[in-house]
């Protein structure tokens, strides 16, 4: 039996010699059918398919159901489950340890749009190069069903009554905050989620993914915009999106004028195949317009909403050595003995 498994997995390895199992995490303790589990699976698939060595990834999260999910993927990656709403600061500091590592932050609508609004806006403003996924379900799950800041106005929940407030739009907030990569997706559209995660992992800068991820226990009624059924009925993809790794031939059939290519800084490409409309994700004004339109028309616009690859990342602003900071030896960190006289002379 064991041999059999070993043989099967040997047969299915990626370019870095790892099986999909090498990307898995612990069994999920979230509810059956939770959108977050579906997203975890797509993170596993994306990293496997991109041949990312798990040791080169760091996972971060705050507090809430979403923030438990880093435990359910990439067991071979370091991870830090921080404080409620304060994953961004934790990730910012930690990534300085070795800026060649890929950061994946997992957060929820409570963690990002309520207590974490400040840190979310500031990590975006600083363009910290990492993937920031918000698993957005419009409700507090771990505390059993309170309205979150992204809950629909008028949403009715058993214990809470009717939500009187307008929702925070996370993609919109990211865009206002000068995010350099903004996408929205739907956990019920796993293929798009996976392709967007791949594109996000290739982005040099903050990649914000606002993924509607239904809470099957507390907020999955047909009439709420965070449910599976609503999403399935109302999803309007901006484009059919596929990610092509660096140096791989583009194998997609298309007619002239039907696709848009976005070349990422690592040489990979995001191919956006036209659906109902022409959409240029490098146009920020357009991005605001479609978001506004989708809110007005009560539909779920998904896809790559905005990308800008010309801004420096936070790390570009510091003149850092190539070697990871956390591997520098004492000789490179402590000024030599003879400098101490200079220091004292600089005093008075």
């Amino acid at each position: 039996m064991t041999d059999q498994i070993a043989q099967t997995s040997r047969a299915q390895v990626n370019l870095v010699g790892l099986t999909k199992n090498d990307y898995r995490g612990n069994p999920s303790s979230l509810c059956q059918g939770c959108g977050h589990n579906s997203i975890s699976s797509q993170i596993i698939a994306a990293c496997y398919e991109l041949n990312i060595v798990p040791e080169n990834v760091i996972k971060f999260s705050g507090i809430g159901c979403s923030s438990k999910s880093p435990f359910y993927f990439l067991n071979r990656s370091f991870g830090f489950n921080g404080l409620h709403g304060r994953m961004p600061s934790l990730a910012t500091g930690a990534l300085f340890g070795n800026i060649s590592l890929k950061g994946i932050g997992l957060s929820g609508d409570g963690d990002t749009a309520s207590i974490g609004m400040g840190q979310f806006k500031h990590i975006v403003r600083r363009n910290v190069p990492m993937v920031y996924i918000v698993e957005n379900n419009g409700v507090y799950g771990l505390t059993k069903g309170q309205f979150s800041a992204t809950a629909d106005e008028g949403l009715e929940l058993k214990k809470q009554g009717t939500n009187p407030y307008l929702p925070v739009d996370i993609a919109w907030e990211a865009l206002v905050g000068h995010a350099t990569f903004v996408a929205r997706s739907f956990a019920g559209d796993p293929k798009q989620v996976k392709e967007l995660i791949k594109a996000a992992l290739s982005h040099k800068g903050i990649a914000m993914l606002d993924i509607i991820s239904p809470c099957v226990t507390f907020n999955n009624q047909d009439n709420t915009s965070h449910s599976y059924s609503w999403g399935k009925e109302h999803e309007v993809a901006l484009h059919d999106l596929s990610y092509v790794p660096p140096a791989e031939e583009i194998m997609i059939d298309y007619e002239d004028g039907q696709i848009k290519e976005v070349t990422m800084h690592d040489g990979s490409m995001v191919i956006l195949k036209k659906l109902d409309r022409d959409y240029d994700p490098t146009n920020r004004t357009e991005a605001f317009r479609v978001l506004e339109e989708s809110n007005k028309d009560c539909c779920l616009i998904t896809g790559l909403i905005y990308i800008n690859q010309s801004l420096p990342t936070l790390f570009d602003l510091y003149n850092l050595p190539d070697e990871p900071l956390n591997r520098l030896s004492e000789e490179r960190l402590r000024p030599p003995r003879e400098t101490i006289d200079k220091v004292n002379a600089m005093m008075f």
Binding site: F80, P88, G93, A94, L325
Partner: peptide, 21 residues
Amino acid sequence: AEDELAAIGMVVGAGWSGLRA
């Protein structure tokens, strides 16, 4: 940082990743 909540968060992240923070 944007505030002390973030300043300490960054420092805890950096300390955890092996930097003198």
